[in-house]
Design a protein around this nucleic acid. Structure first.
Length: 354
RNA sequence: GGCGCAGUAGCCAAGUGGUAAGGCGAGGGUCUGCAAAACCCUUAUGCGUGGGUUCAAUUCCCACCCAGGCCUCCA
């Protein structure tokens, strides 16, 4: 997680620790007569849920019609779309006690209980992949509604990570773990890729797109290096306002990133002209935006330049002063061969890891 | 079969009823001893196809093509 700049959650609840609460909730639904007991479990009655199918963009009738042959009304289910809140266990299966019999929780009761317990009623956002909208999230919402509780105010369903236009999934076998990715690539590249696409859209993640994102990062890191000695000033509020505007517009991170790049270009232009004071506020807002999207410029100060490389750099500077460019170029080639990127600056040769 | 979602330059990817952000790449230029970095210019009269509505559509409507997704009791 740290490799791609994702913060740890404050809470990492385990469903097994909330079984008692789930049983309580199911009991409450039964008491309210929004759930009923059958021979194999406890079911939620979707007729009791205002707007069931909202997240799936389907009416109850559509759901039944669309299910075709699969719309088999369980012998005891009152409605084909009714779903299990508690499922009686078969011998040998893990189970917990309940007033209705030994069993295990059904559809996402843990999500409902844990989010309401830990976040409280009426929390802001509920996220998840597009594929979870139905039935997973639909059924979560259904339970909360049947309970009369105020659930998530906003649902955000993100598009898939795709490879050649196909959903990346274990079952498809086009699966790359982030751990694998981090072995050979800058973890920030994945973040750049995700930021440059809208969250609701699919993102193409392939070696090619990751590689391009790394190239993008190089320009960000280059500006960070160029400005690392510059102190923070008061940020340019007009830039930050524009940033907030696009982020407030359904989290339009691609626009936000465009603003980051455009601001970077403005800073470079001012620095080229020697206008450090003019670049200061823009730089502060640039840093602020990068921080907001969780992209940290690579810290080059931690990079250790070995003595032999340093000696070569000094020797090359001496050769340049002596205008022995043939020797200087030869030394540059040596440095490049050793894996260093060589940049000439007014202060002499600078090297960094390529 | 039902319902949603998408098809935009070489690639990735925003977006709007009034004439296409940004990134990478590519070509040209400025700078430089030469490079690198940086900056500037160019790179879709065009946004899957065919109709329609409109003064005007990539943006709305209809049909079609194509990709991928969900349609439940493992979560």
């Amino acid at each position: 997680m740290a490799g791609i700049g994702v913060l740890r959650p404050d809470q990492v609840p385990h469903a097994t620790e909330f079984v008692d609460r789930m049983v309580e909730m199911v009991g409450e639904l039964v008491d309210r007569e929004h759930a009923y007991v059958t021979s194999d479990g406890v079911y939620l009655s979707v007729d009791a849920v205002e707007g069931y199918g909202l997240l799936a963009h389907q009416s109850l009738d559509d759901l039944v019609a669309g299910a075709g042959d699969r719309a088999v009304v369980g012998e005891e289910k009152r409605h084909p779309s009714d779903f299990a809140l508690w499922k009686f266990s078969k011998p040998g299966e893990p189970s917990w006690p309940s007033p209705w019999g030994e069993g295990r929780p059904g559809w996402h009761t843990e999500c409902v209980v844990m989010s309401l317990d830990l976040l409280g009623d009426g929390f802001d956002l509920h996220g998840g992949g597009l594929d979870l909208a139905f039935p997973h999230h639909e059924n979560e919402r259904a339970q909360a509604v049947a309970l009369g509780r105020d659930f998530a105010h906003h649902w955000m369903h993100n598009g898939f990570v795709e490879v050649s236009g196909e959903k990346m999934a274990k079952s498809v076998g086009n699966f790359t773990t982030l751990t694998q990715l981090l072995e050979t690539h800058d973890g920030r590249a994945y973040r750049v890729l995700v930021l440059q696409a809208h969250y609701r859209s699919p993102v193409e993640v392939t070696p090619a797109t990751i590689g391009r994102a790394e190239a993008t990062l190089q320009t960000i890191d280059a500006l960070a290096r160029r400005t690392e000695a510059l102190a923070d000033m008061a940020p340019d509020e007009s830039v930050l306002d524009a940033f907030r505007d696009v982020m407030d517009d359904d989290l339009n991170t691609p626009r936000a990133m465009a603003l980051v790049f455009e601001t970077g270009t403005r800073i470079n232009t001012l620095l080229d002209a020697g206008d450090t004071d003019g670049a200061g506020p823009l730089l502060a807002s640039w840093r602020s935006m990068l921080s907001a999207v969780g992209l940290d410029p690579r810290d080059s100060s931690a990079e250790v330049v070995p003595d032999d490389v340093e000696a070569l750099v000094r020797a090359r500077d001496a050769a340049k002063v002596a205008k022995d460019y043939g020797l200087a170029d030869q030394m540059r080639e040596q440095l490049v061969a050793l894996g260093w990127v060589v940049e000439d600056t007014p202060d002499g040769t600078r090297v960094r890891r390529g």
